[in-house]
Design a protein around this nucleic acid. Structure first.
Length: 268
DNA sequence: ATGACGGATCTAATCCGA
């Protein structure tokens, strides 16, 4: 019998500010493994107790003061922790582990928070944009070295396809959807022969978003979203993915993150 | 203007998100 394992990813925009909706997610959606980005907390203050209470006894966290920060919380054992620094500046934007069950022997889970890239797509006036492009370049080099079944998930801060944004025309010069970002993400994708799981289940001709700005008066009515959060797998895992959903309902819970969680059900 | 909100920190004004 195959083992079903659900893996979710959620940019939580401060885990301590979201305790209520994190609890609700763990209770109601209850994925086996949850990858978090933008935890905004140092490791010693990470709310481990909350997760333990709902069966997430295995945790790997990589935090820093104030910004960024990532974590994997899991009902299944996590082993062989690794941390990459694809920005080469010490920011906490990656953590990975092997999923330590018999069925997932040798399967790694990489959780990444790719930099947003600042306001304007201008290398001269916005150094953050260059950092984002360099980050993608280093991920591509890493991708070429991946030698085991791997799930790469997180907030990529890039909406790669025309229907991953509410208006391709209006966002073509907006950071997250510029040609140079799309080209670099395509290079990264090709380097590992990655499969974009969401688009295996939702046809590329259909709009699909995971993020809606806080600044919209009515985010749901205007629906000006972007698909920034992704779940990619190496070729050997492509057929193991059985479903994929964006839990859009979480965006309308009280005191929400501006990102909705994504979740894939695997049969290993 | 797509849209001006929301979190963390030197608890005030600023950086950051995208």
């Amino acid at each position: 019998m195959p083992q079903n394992i659900s893996i979710a990813s959620w940019n939580i925009n401060s885990v301590r500010a979201r305790l209520d909706i994190v609890e609700r997610f763990c209770k109601e959606i209850s994925p086996d493994i949850l990858c978090l980005q933008e935890t905004k907390v140092i490791d010693t203050l990470f709310p481990e107790g909350l997760f333990r209470q709902f069966g997430y006894r295995h945790m790997m966290i990589n935090g820093q003061p104030m910004h960024h920060g990532v974590a994997i919380v899991s009902k299944l054992p996590l082993i062989n922790r690794r941390v990459e620094d694809w920005q080469a500046n010490g920011e906490a934007r990656h953590i990975s582990a092997e999923i330590g069950t018999e069925a997932t022997k040798g399967v790694r889970l990489d959780n990444v928070y790719i930099p947003a890239g600042g306001e304007v797509p201008d290398l001269e006036n916005n150094p953050k944009f260059g950092q984002k492009l360099a980050f993608l370049g280093r991920m591509t080099e890493w991708s070429k070295t991946v030698d085991c079944p791997t799930i790469l998930t997180g907030d990529f801060n890039v909406a790669p396809l025309e229907h991953d944004v509410w208006s391709h025309k209006q966002l073509v010069n907006v950071v997250s959807h510029t040609k140079v970002e799309l080209d670099l993400l395509a290079e990264l994708k090709a380097a590992g022969d990655w499969t974009d799981i969401a688009r295996e289940f939702v046809d590329p001709s259909q709009k699909l978003y995971t993020w809606w700005s806080y600044r919209a008066q009515d985010w749901e009515a205007t629906d000006k979203g972007r698909r920034l959060d992704h779940m990619w797998v190496t070729p050997d895992l492509k057929d193991k993915a059985k479903s994929h959903v964006v839990h859009k309902t979480c965006r309308s819970w009280g005191k929400p993150s501006d990102h909705a969680p994504i979740m894939t059900e695997f049969a290993f």
